[in-house]
Design a protein around this nucleic acid. Structure first.
Lengths: 242, 242
DNA sequence: GTATAGCCAATGTCCGGACGTATTTCTCGG
DNA sequence: CCGAGAAATACGTCCGGACATTGGCTATAC
């Protein structure tokens, strides 16, 4: 029976993939049912299920008992995963750096700040600001503004005691686990307000890294904005094909 | 039968996972055979295979016909995958942009260039330079220097004809498939040599994105260095816990 | 008009069986 | 003792069957 170079289920998966890619089975539409595919290919339900499973694992289909199988995408999902690393490493959080808190205060989100925070105008936050340094080095690697929800105001007292990221302090004090992080990197000039603290001239090119942390309560509970003057920090990533 | 909160195969997978984690089934050793597990748990081979498959998909086991099932790891791999996206999207390659080639020439890697390229001093490259623009917009979003190995010099003639990334042109002309990309992002000032082309003042803050492409021949075949003046490009990523 | 219950369709779980392919071990012959 | 072939072991593919769970639609009752 299996005298082919590929198993039957793989051949069927490939054929269905071609149909998805060609638009014959468009994104958003229902696939034929398992029974219809059994008839069409003249194979058992088991083989069809395995073929569908292959496509599902590629992220092309989603299946719902009672409803059916829906085409979700035309291309295999991230076949180029990030390397296997912890969240800290994935975020390229500067390792072994302590945040030296310079100020801590409640703020209300203006239009511009709301855009940065990804929150609504008028929302309340605790803003904790300071410089982050690598131990043993003269110049700070960045200025950081950390915004946390008022419920977690107490982290301000704990930050800086250990060289750990703020989200880990939140995690340990309040049990809020990170489920998602959104990351933005862009170029800007170092604002005058923080130039002296990081020991550069105002306007010096800087890499700005914004990290928005969402927890299991489905809300953004922390946003950090780090301003790295040029030559102090490089964000690096490695993407590998399986 | 299925009056439990979890399917049988999931319960068995969980139990086996506990044994792997506790060291009762150490990394590097053989798991019990399918038949042994059928007897032990009093279930069908199908159910055992599904349980094993779950652990296999987590990267904890590898299976070999004729040999058996080997414990490979004690922890599920990378629980913080990058979001499900194609390579283009993962690289945050500016979409629908065409590279307008301004120059193309052979270069020899100086010490500084070798550092950027991740290659040795003295190696030969073809340097293809130009601006990248979004169709319909006035200002280019970046200046790009693309370095390819001399073997792929011919891409210079093809670049810019379609709004596709250079590595895709290489792929289609020469069949070299990307297996790995290393990505660096840092801040710099726009050099005087490219300031006019991107319509900013020299020294303007810029996000510099270096992408190094390795192919299946295990060598870096392309390096691109894009200089994005401030306010023209943001690199964004989303990391989610499963 | 709305809510609820029932029915049907579609996927999910689990059983059993048979044969194919890969790997290792054992046996027999030179 | 060594090599070749056969047998045993273990996973991979594929078939068939049955029942459970999920989701949507339709009909009926209030």
């Amino acid at each position: 029976m299996t005298q082919r170079s590929q198993p039957l289920y793989q051949e069927i998966a490939d054929e269905l993939l071609d149909e998805i890619r060609s638009g014959k089975l468009p994104v958003g539409t229902m696939m034929p049912t398992e029974m219809e595919l059994c008839e069409r290919f003249g194979v058992s339900r088991h083989t069809i299920r395995e073929a569908i499973r292959q496509l599902g694992e590629l992220g092309l289909l989603t299946r719902q008992a009672g409803l059916g199988t829906i085409v979700k995408a035309t291309e295999a999902r991230g076949t180029y995963p990030q390397s296997n690393e912890s969240l800290d490493a994935l975020l390229r959080y500067p390792p072994e750096t302590a945040l030296e808190v310079r100020s801590s205060e409640p703020v209300t989100a203006t239009l511009e700040l709301a855009k940065t925070l990804g929150s609504k105008v008028g929302t309340e936050w605790i803003k904790i600001s300071g410089v982050r340094s690598v131990q043993g080095q003269d110049k700070p690697i960045c200025w950081t503004d950390v915004y946390v929800i008022p419920e977690y105001a107490r982290v301000a007292e704990e930050i800086g005691k250990e060289p750990v990221p703020v989200y880990r302090v939140v995690e340990s004090l309040f049990g809020e686990q990170v489920t998602e992080v959104k990351l933005d990197l862009f170029a800007d000039g170092v604002p005058e307000s923080m130039a002296e603290a990081v020991q550069v001239a105002a306007g010096t090119p800087a890499l700005v890294v914004v990290r928005r942390y969402t927890g299991h309560k489905k809300r953004v509970f922390e946003v950090s904005v780090s301003v790295h003057p040029q030559d102090r920090f490089t964000y690096s990533a490695e993407l590998r094909r399986d």
